[in-house]
């Protein structure tokens, strides 16, 4: 009697051993497939967060020939840039404007036309020789310094380069309403 139980138990035991082995193998193998497949799937899914998907062209934008400039007469030039949205590249469109001033040493200054106060477009007033923001009457001199009005800082200058008689600018939008010039 005792012997018989023993045999039965061993049989059961070995059978369970085999089944447990199969269970472990099944779980391990299917987990491996799961992981192997999950990695590329997750990479694909998070891909947009790790890449630049929507962008304007980086670097310098051409403003035109320097021959158009007169000394100390601010000239308004539209900034034209192309936008890329994932696979689509949109043709160049106007994304903003700058004021270009050439001083008598042929040095160029570029101001964004956006008022640092609240983002209105600044005009050049030929009669007074000053920049005037039409929204809240901030007034700037030709070098962009605040003369009067609510603007927290002077007009924002942009980096310019002259290459082969053409002016290029690094167009950037700045944070509004603060006294320091920081990129937005």
């Amino acid at each position: 009697m005792k012997k018989q139980i023993c045999v039965e138990e061993t049989e059961l035991h070995t059978n369970n051993g085999r089944r447990n082995f199969l269970k472990i193998c099944s779980v391990v193998l299917s987990s491996l497939i799961g992981i192997a497949y999950a990695v590329p799937l997750i990479r694909t899914f998070i891909s947009p967060a790790l890449q630049q998907t929507v962008s304007g062209s980086t670097g310098l934008l051409e403003l035109g020939s320097i021959s158009n400039c007169q000394v100390n007469v601010p000239m308004n030039v539209k900034i034209v840039d192309a936008k890329t949205d994932a696979w689509t590249k949109f043709p160049p469109t106007e994304i903003g404007a700058v004021w270009i001033i050439m001083n008598k040493d042929m040095k160029f200054t570029a101001f964004t036309s956006i008022c640092p106060h609240l983002g209105c477009g600044i005009n050049w007033d030929e009669n007074s020789g000053k920049f005037i923001c039409p929204c809240h009457d901030s007034i700037f001199d030709i070098e962009g310094r605040v003369l009067s009005g609510p603007s927290p800082r002077g007009m924002d200058t942009l980096e310019t380069v002259v290459i082969d008689g053409k002016i290029f600018v690094k167009y950037q939008k700045m944070r509004l309403g603060v006294s320091d010039k920081v990129p937005a």
């Binding site: 590329p40 990479r43 694909t44 947009p48 790790l50 994932a86 696979w87």
Partner: peptide, 17 residues
Amino acid sequence: WGSVYYIQHKTFSGWFV
């Protein structure tokens, strides 16, 4: 076509998926 191109050539592992 553009979106499939993007999946295939610009997305990480997109070609594999």
